[in-house]
Write a protein that binds this DNA or RNA. Structure first.
Lengths: 198, 198, 198, 198
DNA sequence: AAGTAATCGAGACGGTACGTCATGTCTTAGC
DNA sequence: GCTAAGACATGACGTACCGTCTCGATTACTT
């Protein structure tokens, strides 16, 4: 149904927060319920009960809408742990797996990753606003945990993170959930080599 | 340039092989030179010097065109090794990295992986015609190498392959080449645990 | 239904009369049952169980197919009377009205008249193969009847025929049957002026 | 030439009158210069410098475009006379002949009449928007002139009009102009029977 | 209190690509 | 040499979105 929104109070001079949220939620809903193909600017405007121009005024493209939701949701749902412990890192990886598989916001991440492959502009935004900031904090996490003796990675921090996250993402992209046990094994194999892995 | 093809000999009753190849090459070229966004059926037809209907007659969608090229090219450029040796597997992984990074056909793989995330139909085709057949032969490779004592994987065959390929693909998607050395390290960590590597 | 024709005996060297008739009947049937819009060469070929090329080999266009049927049918169904009598002419006009209104072949005449307005080629064929030959014999009919004192037209032979046939055709084109009584009145008014009809 | 229109002032929320006129004129021009076969929606859009969708937004089919021009032009170029005199009617018939033969808008009438024979939808529109309204006023003209003793028709008003207009239209359709003298003779024969027709 | 400015919804506009259909030309292979 | 079958280049069909634009209303700051 095309959003039986009661006509929002017309706004006036300042940006209409209700319209902003309606757009973000409409984008999320459309992606979750109809798939990326249905995620057109016109459909978002219809679903949100908003004029197309209102979208173009504030977002240069639908990718930026998705990035807005991803940045907010991932900060909340898959926070990077503060404590540089082995358990913290393990939990982070498990949480990331769950996020990709079971959280609607995880679909947004996959959609953006895919779109970045088709659209250089999307690639830049995805790098700058999601991947890079997150990677910097992951790097710091790895560094501090290594220093603390919690882990001893066989790879540099970037390669280690790619080696840990890559299988999870690849699984999600190919429709296979990378199991929590496999995540743990991966963790042991790459970050704590040659222990009596119990 | 809009394909200054000399007018192909008109074919007649049977499928025109020249037209088939022209379409496959046009699709490849457009993807490589202009990116996925430029890969429209109309552009392929223009570039190939072929009628749109000729494309729709033989391919249900542009995804199937790419799948045709991917299936042919990947069989040739990244063959799955026959000999179930550690070296064979290591070379396969290195070859796959190179394929993704430096071979135009690797772009096709990434484009299809991305498109599968946006388009359920593409996902099915990609699974059935690329991922599944390849995975079956990878599984057998792992099994035979394990049996031969060449490797002793810490994960089941599917998870192991995802853990090995995932980082390579994820790197390619995020614009980072997963280095050959890292590939080797990954190989050692996951398939030959706790040997004398320190 | 797509013509459950029993597969005609394959022909061989000479023109296949069965194919010729199948095409003519298919064209007639399609026009009568589906209207002119459905009268495509492909549909005729389907309906007749004949290859498209067989049609193009023998007829330069679908208009010529219709002309073939019209020439045959009109000669039979609306013959121009031999006897140059007032009654003969009156019957001819009545017969023409019935032909246009109630005979399927009359639809062919209207269709061709209409198509001639859209298509110069059709106009030429329609003139040469239907209108002109018929008009020549109509002219002769008028001339002989005048000479015999059966009629005394107020217009030249061509204008007289146009004045007599025009209303009938115009009525058929605009969906109104020009009534037999009106035809008679027209006949009296134009060909037998100022007699005792009041 | 593909319409070197200076970019029309973009309109905004309301219907763009310039675009409307551009479409009507383009349709007229194409019909006059290239014939009905060239009158495709795409060609009209090209010629008018207008997007195809702008045409489909306002007209359900190209027939309605032609009807728009016909209704406007015929009201101006072949007005039905107000004064119910013999001379008025005779002038109307002469004017109609000239309209069909020498006015580009007359081609539109013929094209629509022809198209109505091929396309039931066109037939309905042509009836409702051109034929019926005009016939109603013609009927009234005949009635008032009869009452005033200016004419004394030998046929009912509808049949009389068909008998007067039919030859003119039929002549135009078959490529013969029904001469003004013949029109006058027809007028005398049908509307003023048995006078000393001088 | 009037004037200015930015927002909003609505939606028309010129475009591009979609996937389908019919055209008329051509080749193959069977009789 | 005829036939059925059908591939092919061409180009129009009518639809969906794109991103830009103008409208008239609403609302808040400015004077």
């Amino acid at each position: 149904m095309p959003a039986a929104n009661p006509p929002r109070a017309r706004s006036g001079n300042r940006r209409d927060e209700a319209a902003r949220l309606a757009v973000l939620h409409a984008a999320d809903d459309l992606l979750a319920e109809q798939g990326f193909a249905a995620l057109t600017v016109e459909a978002i405007a219809r679903q949100a009960g908003v004029a197309k121009q209102t979208i173009y005024r504030w977002w240069p493209s639908k990718v930026e809408i998705l990035l807005d939701t991803l940045v907010e949701d991932s900060a909340e749902d898959v926070p990077i742990p503060d404590s540089p412990t082995a358990d913290g890192i393990r939990d982070y990886l498990r949480g990331f797996t769950r996020f990709l598989s079971h959280d609607p916001a995880g679909k947004v991440l996959l959609a953006l990753l895919a779109q970045a492959e088709h659209d250089p502009g999307a690639a830049v935004g995805f790098q700058e606003r999601y991947l890079r900031p997150r990677r910097e904090r992951e790097r710091e996490l790895i560094a501090r945990a290594t220093e603390a003796g919690e882990i001893s990675p066989r790879l540099g921090p970037d390669a280690a993170m790619d080696a840990l996250l890559g299988p999870i993402v690849y699984g999600a992209l190919t429709g296979v959930e990378f199991s929590p046990e496999s995540v743990d094994t991966l963790f042991e194999a790459l970050l704590r080599p040659c222990t009596r892995d119990g």
